[in-house]
């Protein structure tokens, strides 16, 4: 690939999968600002290393770069504690409980509106260790195949499978926990 062609290729690729890249950034970094900056970093890095793209799944290649940029940001963030600014939802662990209405189990479903259900799932996802969270997001939200996820995470497929299984089990347990909580809050 010539330099110009590979630049065009990266530009096109990044724009086509910009939502996926940004979404991954949001789930890994928590806030809009960092996610956008990480995608920006990723774009620059991708254009620089376009020559190293050796065929295969282009979306997975691009998302792998985005992920690396996110992890680099997380790394500097953990070294520099002043910048901790994860989304609204990880603020307090008791927040999920606050969102739940204290009423009969029967009409709980009706009472929790979409925003509350959304806050609940975001809360539980953000509570998951990052390796399970990213595997779940890539599979369930971005709908990547095992092999694509393995390429993004740079791990063997077996690791992808075990992380997905563990992530799903943890999330199911967490959701069941708040569901049980709902009932006990009733009269």
């Amino acid at each position: 690939m010539t330099a110009a062609a590979s630049q065009d290729f990266v530009g096109e690729l990044a724009q086509r999968h910009l939502d996926a890249a940004y979404s991954l950034g949001r789930w890994l970094l928590g806030n809009e600002h960092d996610a956008a900056d990480a995608v920006h970093d990723a774009f620059l890095r991708a254009t620089k290393s376009a020559d190293t793209y050796a065929g295969g799944n282009a979306r997975a290649w691009w998302l792998a770069i985005v992920r690396n940029c996110c992890l680099a940001r997380l790394d500097t963030r953990s070294r520099d504690r002043r910048n901790v600014s994860i989304d609204d939802t990880t603020g307090g662990s008791d927040r999920a409980e606050q969102l739940l209405p204290h009423s009969e189990a029967g009409d709980v479903e009706d009472r929790i509106d979409h925003a509350q259900r959304q806050a609940l799932i975001v809360h539980h996802l953000n509570n998951l260790p990052i390796e399970f969270r990213e595997a779940l997001i890539l599979r369930e939200i971005e709908e990547l195949s095992y092999r694509e996820i393995a390429e993004v995470l740079q791990t063997p497929i077996g690791t992808v499978m075990s992380r997905l299984a563990r992530g799903r089990a943890l999330l199911q347990k967490a959701l069941a926990g708040t569901a049980a909580g709902k009932v006990t809050h009733g009269p």
């Binding site: 630049q7 920006h40 259900r117 939200i141």
Partner: peptide, 28 residues
């Protein structure tokens, strides 16, 4: 179903999209 229905879909903000478009155009 819970994840797909309830987890927020984060779409790239316009500002970021414009930034990347501009970068791509500049590089080209």
């Amino acid at each position: 179903r819970t994840l797909r229905d309830d987890a927020p879909r984060h779409t790239a903000p316009d500002l970021l999209r414009k930034r990347i478009e501009k970068l791509a155009a500049a590089q080209a």
